[in-house]
Simulated assay, not measured.
Amino acid sequence: GGGAVRLTLEEENSLHGDLIQQDFMDTYNNLTLKTLMGMEWVSKHCPNASYVVKADSDVFLNLNYLVAQRLSVINMEDCFVGICMHALGIGLTDSPWGMFNMYRLEYNACRFSRLVMVHHYQPDELLNI
């Protein structure tokens, strides 16, 4: 019954102090609210956390394997992302030609509407674009 669940929750909270409550029903349709509540709690109470894991109660999570994985950080961000992808076994694919531009283009509304990224603009130029 509900009384046994309440006693179990009170015991959990008194032993570990790890229960968080808000004013909504814990249903599938409220899962987004539940996740946002958790993210808000983490940002407030764990600002220096290296990472946070959210998992359902029916998920196997191998924390020992998750936290044994370490890569040396390097200051070249794009190279580091590539190293991380390699370590995770994620392959690289070529992007569609011309949709990611690493060089500056003169702005044209029609042309830019079909591009994903164009590089090398000043902040005021980006606001105009």
Rank of each mutant, 00 (worst) to 15 (best):
L9K: 12
V118E: 03
F100R: 04
M102T: 03
T27I: 13
L61I: 15
I129C: 04
T32F: 10
R104E: 07
D23T: 10
V67E: 12
P96A: 12
I90M: 10
Y51D: 13
C84F: 04
M102R: 06
C110T: 14
T35E: 06
V52T: 14
E77M: 06
V81P: 01
E106D: 08
Y107A: 00
A49H: 12
G3M: 11
V73S: 09
M85I: 00
T35L: 06
Q69F: 15
D78V: 12
K54P: 00
Y51G: 13
H120Y: 14
L36N: 09
F60M: 08
M99C: 02
L31K: 06
I90N: 07
R6C: 01
S43W: 02
V42Y: 04
A68Q: 14
K44I: 05
L15T: 06
N48F: 14
S43K: 11
L19A: 00
D56L: 09
I74N: 13
P47D: 07
W41V: 02
M39A: 04
F24I: 04
F80Y: 12
D124Y: 14
D26M: 07
I83D: 08
H86F: 07
N75M: 07
F24V: 02
F112I: 01
F112K: 00
Q21S: 11
R6E: 04
L92I: 05
P96E: 11
F112H: 02
G1Y: 09
L36Q: 06
Q21Y: 13
L31R: 08
L126P: 01
Q69C: 12
M39Q: 09
L127G: 04
G2N: 09
E10F: 10
N75I: 09
G38V: 04
I74E: 13
F112W: 01
C46P: 01
R104L: 09
V52L: 06
N62V: 13
N128R: 15
G3L: 07
I129A: 06
L66S: 15
N101Q: 09
H16C: 00
L126Q: 05
M37A: 11
V67M: 10
L7V: 05
A68H: 14
E40Y: 13
I20G: 02
D58A: 08
D18W: 01
D26I: 09
I83P: 00
C46K: 15
H120P: 01
Y65K: 15
S95H: 05
A55K: 05
S72P: 09
I20T: 05
E125G: 04
F112L: 01
N64C: 11
N48A: 11
A55I: 02
R104A: 07
Q22N: 03
A55F: 05
A68E: 15
A4H: 11
D94I: 02
